[in-house]
Amino acid sequence: MGLTQALFFTFAALALASALSVVFTRHTVWAAYLFVAHLLCLAVLYACLSAPLVAVLQVMVYGGAVMVLFIFAIMILDASVLGRLDWRQEALQAGLSLALGLGLAGLLFYVLDRHAPALALANPVSASADLGRGNVAALGRMLYTQYLLPFEVISVLLVVAAVGILVMAKRKLED
């Protein structure tokens, strides 16, 4: 087991653990920190999966921008703990959510298991390490040629989102 693989499995475990913690922790701020940890773990996993650009973007966009937004929101909303529900109600909701999550997971694993042989057969190249090195240029070329239209649509989407946020954040004129 090489270093990469060791890293991968370690951080995979950490990612899953932090994901679970986000769901089960009671404090919003703690949830935010755990979520950052989860995102960074994923960045490591991306790096191990020979996707360095995605890993870097993950750190910049999620670990940076998105988290800053969350922290700001927490500061503004000032609601670290919500009022508690009746325990019976809470238990019922937890049970239902758990059942739903487990059902989904079971189903996904079942599908995965069923299709694993087909996947193995389809394997064209054994995970080539070459993909990782210097694929930034190739990715960029792809984005600006084959995926130009989605790329531009995404740009428009971002502009629209920015304008929409401005409009919403602005206090009403008549106030």
């Binding site: 899953l16 994901a19 679970l20 986000v22 769901v23 909701q93 937890a94 239902l96 959510s97 758990l98 739903l100 999550g101 487990l102 989904l104 997971a105 996904l108």
Partner: peptide, 9 residues
């Protein structure tokens, strides 16, 4: 699945 469960919980 964890995310989905969290969304509903």
């Amino acid at each position: 699945s964890v995310g989905a469960a969290g969304v509903t919980f």
